[in-house]
Structures are given as structure tokens and as C-alpha cells.
């Protein structure tokens, strides 16, 4: 008796295969859910956090907002940012003289011009896209780009010069296709 019930259980279990095949058949005729990549691309990349890029200041699209405080470079867990200011122009002899005279008179001396960004190198091969630099920047000069399609045979292609990239963007050259390379 036990053997018969076991056999019946096995045979009735075969029905589950038909149920499964019915589902397979149903989905076989459904429209495709995948995107054929090179011919089509997805459209939800606006929220994607791709490689970091500089934000242009409000009045000059070629100049970044950056104030060269170097906090981002210190905050990065993997040290992928190299930031340096332009060397300040050496004051000419006349300027020094004028400054000394002004100091002697007790006038207020004009402060040196604010530091200007000289290099902003970003090594994407080290970056883990955690966003610590973006969170840290006090003036909001860093943002994530939405470049998702990155491929190269050269490691050096992923060491970006972000200043040159910003200049390209200001000229209207699409970033991503013409990343300025070191």
C-alpha cells in the first residue's frame, strides 16, 4: 500500500512540470526585457554616480568653484585626488616697494589674490565612488558625473585631468567621449 501511494505521489508530481512549462511558455512569448547594449542604452543614468568631476563657478564656465582648500584630497580614503594651487605670481620690485610704503604709512595692505587651482588630477582606478570628497567639499565644487560606459586598454586613460575636462565641457565637447588624458 505504501509503495502504491509513493508511486501515485511521483506520478502526480509530474503535473508540476506541466505547470512550470506553462509559465515558461507564457514568458517565451512575452516581449523582451533586456536592452541590447551597443544598439540601445538605458535611460536612467542621471542618478548614477560615475567618476567625480569639477563644478564650474556660476559666472565663468571654464573656472571651477574650487578654493584649493585641499580638504577633498585629505578626505579621500584611497588618495585618488591630487590637488595643487597655481604658484602665486612673484611680486615685482615696484609692488614690493609700494606695499612697504603703504605699510609704513599705516594703510591697509591689499591681501594676496585668492589661490587659483593649478592641477586637479583624479585617479579613477583607485576611486571607490564613496562620495566622501563630494560630501566634504565646502563650496560644492565636486559632483558625480553620469559616465557609465567607460572602457579602455590603457590604465592611464583613467587618470583624469579634471581642469582640462571642465574646459572641454565649457567648450561644449561632450565629456566621456573626449576625456582629457594625462
Amino acid at each position: 500500500m505504501n509503495g502504491i501511494s509513493q508511486m501515485w505521489k511521483n506520478i502526480s508530481g509530474l503535473w508540476s512540470l506541466i505547470v512550470g512549462l506553462k509559465i515558461t511558455g507564457k514568458y517565451f512569448v512575452c516581449p523582451q526585457v533586456t536592452v541590447h547594449y551597443p544598439r540601445k542604452t538605458v535611460d536612467n543614468l542621471s542618478t548614477f554616480r560615475g567618476p567625480v568631476e569639477l563644478v564650474a563657478s556660476d559666472n565663468d564656465p571654464t573656472k571651477p568653484k574650487c578654493i584649493v582648500c585641499l580638504q577633498c584630497a585629505g578626505a579621500c580614503p584611497s588618495g585618488c585626488l591630487t590637488v595643487a594651487a597655481k604658484p602665486a605670481p612673484k611680486p615685482t620690485a615696484e609692488e614690493i616697494k609700494a606695499k612697504k610704503e603703504a605699510e609704513a604709512k599705516g594703510e591697509k595692505v591689499k591681501k594676496a589674490a585668492p589661490k587659483e587651482l593649478g592641477t586637479f588630477r583624479y585617479d579613477f582606478t583607485l576611486c571607490s565612488l564613496c562620495g566622501t570628497c563630494v560630501d566634504t567639499c565646502p563650496v560644492g565644487s565636486l559632483q558625480f558625473s553620469s559616465d557609465a560606459y567607460l572602457a579602455s586598454r590603457n590604465k592611464e586613460d583613467f587618470v583624469y585631468d579634471l581642469l582640462a575636462r571642465l574646459a572641454d565641457q565649457a567648450k561644449g565637447i561632450k565629456s566621456g567621449s573626449s576625456q582629457s588624458k594625462e
Partner: peptide, 19 residues
């Protein structure tokens, strides 16, 4: 991806809240 920006190695929480 909308709030976190990534799809796999999410880094979304911070001490004190979320990004």
C-alpha cells in the same frame, strides 16, 4: 540607484543619517 547612486557596492549610510 536613485538614492544611492550605485547598483552593487552601495555606500549610502553615514553616521547621523543617509547621503
Amino acid at each position: 540607484q536613485i538614492p544611492t547612486g550605485s547598483r552593487l557596492t552601495l555606500c549610502y549610510f553615514r553616521p547621523g543619517g543617509v547621503v
